[in-house]
């Protein structure tokens, strides 16, 4: 079904018009790329070249020492980020998939009430629950390290992952599940052999979504982890420190911190869009 959704449509406007469309598209592309341009060029400049009045200028020479310096500072924290984000994304995706399956295709009494209650959790302002969160994590002995941070991302990811999978599964025909039941397959069998193989568009969407939101998170990370377990966002924030900020190193570090999520979008962006178009995040 995803292939039909992505199939290229017919030409929709007369030929000579169509090429004019490149003008606004390219202008918008420039707008989207401006922050990236500034991050990269500033990261390549020497400290004495940094000046707000010359921010648009290209660097006088290409030098990578800022990137090396930033990488040396950030590398251990980047590893922390990876070892937190990957389990968090995968575990919450599977939880969402199972919830979505049960709530869409294997409903029990009350399932229709459970779903909106779970969904509502997406909208909670996280700043207001930091204190009970830290207290609770401390009680269950999950405070300070990466496992606790993984747990927080998994749990606060449940609403969005459940929503994505439930809507996707709801769009699949009923007959799929009924046929499988006729064949005598149970709940797990139906999930494992029928639905799971069809789920990859949603998995890609949810994995990417969770990966980026956990990677970019600062709030949970700064209150739930101790210095040994800090992910990269906290370390990056600390680089800015005080007094004179070495903007070139800071920008190089910012860029490095964004590289993993950028790579995910560059290489998996197609699948993400395909998943979105296949109805994953729609109404």
């Amino acid at each position: 079904m995803s292939t039909t959704a992505l199939s290229k449509p017919l030409r929709r406007l007369p030929f000579q018009w169509r090429h004019l469309l490149y003008l606004p598209l390219i202008l918008m592309s420039i707008f989207y790329l401006i922050p990236l341009y500034l991050m990269l060029t500033t990261g390549l400049k020497g400290f004495e070249e940094i000046n707000l009045q010359t921010m648009w200028d290209l660097p006088k020479s290409i030098r990578f020492d800022n990137f090396i310096a930033a990488f040396q500072t950030l590398a251990p924290y980047m590893w922390n980020s990876f070892s937190m984000v990957i389990p968090a994304a995968i575990i919450s995706s599977f939880l969402g998939s199972i919830n979505g399956f049960v709530l869409a295709k294997w409903k029990f009494r009350g399932a229709d009430l459970i779903f909106p209650l779970i969904l509502f959790g997406m909208f909670i302002p996280y700043q207001s629950i930091l204190i009970p969160l830290v207290e609770f994590m401390k009680t269950i002995n999950m405070y300070g390290g990466l496992p606790g941070l993984v747990l927080a991302h998994v749990i606060y990811g449940i609403p969005i992952t459940t929503l994505t999978f439930r809507n996707y599964y709801a769009s699949l025909p009923k007959e799929l599940v009924e046929a499988s039941r006729m064949d005598g397959a149970g709940l797990l069998g139906t999930y494992w052999y029928i639905l799971l193989p069809l789920s990859w568009p949603s998995f890609v969407v949810v994995l990417i979504w969770q990966f980026t939101s956990a990677w970019n998170d600062f709030l949970f990370a700064v209150v739930l982890t101790n210095p040994q377990a800090w992910p990269i966002t906290v370390a990056l924030n600390n680089m800015a420190g005080s007094q004179i900020i070495a903007w070139n190193i800071q920008m190089a570090g910012s860029f490095l911190a964004a590289v993993p999520t950028l790579l995910v979008y560059i290489f998996l962006g197609r699948y993400f869009l395909r998943g979105l178009m296949a109805g994953s995040l729609k109404g």
Binding site: P35, M39, N216, L236, A258, L262
Partner: peptide
């Protein structure tokens, strides 16, 4: 949307 405001 891949980049956080901590970065940009």
């Amino acid at each position: 949307m891949a980049i956080s405001f901590i970065v940009t």
